[in-house]
């Protein structure tokens, strides 16, 4: 077992075997093997993840400063209806819709609605769902049975039917849409939070906290919750993506945001009758939905990956 090592020999990838020929060192005439070269483990940072975050930042910034941008008003025609995209003028760079309104402007203002609905609905749902899930998972017993019954019932209800019912009772608006969508998110987070709470509660540090005289409130909020957040947070973008798609589908069915406020789903609905002759009216918002949802899913995967690593490393 000599300390002086020979120069590393060449090795292939995977569980490679370095050149096994023994090397004689000058020092003691002892036989030692070559140092194997281990393929370096790099942190996997794919281009897609960079793209996803860039796209999300771009969309969010555009939506946030939409009213400061030199855009045409989204409710007033700027040109002839149904002009195709890439036609010179800035306002009509993405074409115009049925009424001659700028699609660019409607996309940017629509992003506001779509993102807002997606974010607020999933956050609100996550908040309520997590609280219910933690209570169910920590106390178990009767309260757990009740909460599980409620979430199972909510899950068994066809979502579209639920939203239809809601929009028939309440007048369709951004607010009712958010309430309806949030309701759909609650059970998912309840289940996720409940399962995680049960597994964290059985850890010794919870028992240690009890043994130090901690009350339930402290255990739930200070001991368990911080450990749930990374997992739930990583799931949030994925739910948000689903909410954006849901809003799109609802608007498509005419149960979404009332006109003239634009939303991406609503724009697709508006263009659907003319899709054969003027596909851009459907394609442009569809591409935006696709890219945003894709980016959100990528971000969610990336966050979850990172969370797993910090947990196990």
């Amino acid at each position: 077992m000599s300390a002086d090592l020979s120069k590393p020999a060449a090795a292939g990838g995977g569980a490679a075997v370095a050149e096994k020929q023994a090397v004689t060192t000058a020092a003691g005439g002892e036989v030692t093997s070559a140092e194997p070269r281990v393929p370096t483990v790099r942190k996997q940072r794919s281009v897609l993840v960079y793209f996803a975050y860039t796209w999300l930042v771009l969309i969010i910034v555009l939506a946030a400063i939409a009213s400061l941008l030199p855009l045409a008003k989204y409710s007033i025609p700027v040109d002839a209806p149904r002009i195709g995209p890439f036609g010179g003028d800035f306002d009509t760079v993405l074409g115009t819709d049925n009424q001659g309104r700028s699609i660019l402007s409607r996309i940017v203002f629509g992003a506001r609605v779509s993102l807002l609905v997606g974010a607020v609905a999933s956050l609100a749902g996550a908040l309520v769902g997590t609280a219910l899930g933690m209570i169910a998972g920590y106390f178990l017993g009767r309260i757990d049975a009740l909460i599980r019954l409620l979430t199972d019932a909510l899950l068994a209800f066809p979502p579209l039917l639920l939203l239809l019912a809601l929009s028939s009772i309440l007048t369709p608006s951004v607010k009712t849409l958010i309430i309806g969508l949030a309701l759909l998110v609650v059970p998912t987070f309840t289940r996720l939070a409940r399962a995680n709470t049960i597994s964290w509660s059985s850890r010794d540090f919870i028992m240690a906290a009890r043994n130090m005289g901690a009350r339930r409130r402290r255990i739930l909020l200070r001991e368990i919750l911080p450990n749930l957040l990374p997992g739930l947070g990583a799931y949030l973008p994925i739910v948000m993506a689903a909410m954006i798609v849901a809003e799109g589908s609802l608007s498509f069915l005419g149960m979404g945001i009332p006109p003239p406020t634009p939303s991406w789903g609503g724009m697709i609905a508006d263009g659907k009758d003319a899709v054969a002759d003027h596909p851009h009216m459907v394609m442009v918002p569809a591409v935006f939905i696709f890219l945003t949802v894709f980016a959100l899913n990528q971000a969610g995967d990336h966050l979850r990956h990172r969370f797993d690593r910090t947990l196990h490393d």
Partner: peptide, 28 residues
């Protein structure tokens, strides 16, 4: 319980993974 303390078998599992050493020791 404060005057009856306990030490557990798996030291890693008995510490809240999201808390630093200096906070952990004075949790009680």
């Amino acid at each position: 319980r404060r005057s009856m303390q306990m030490i557990f078998q798996d030291p890693q599992a008995s510490l809240n993974p999201r808390r630093s050493v200096k906070d952990l020791v004075v949790e009680g």
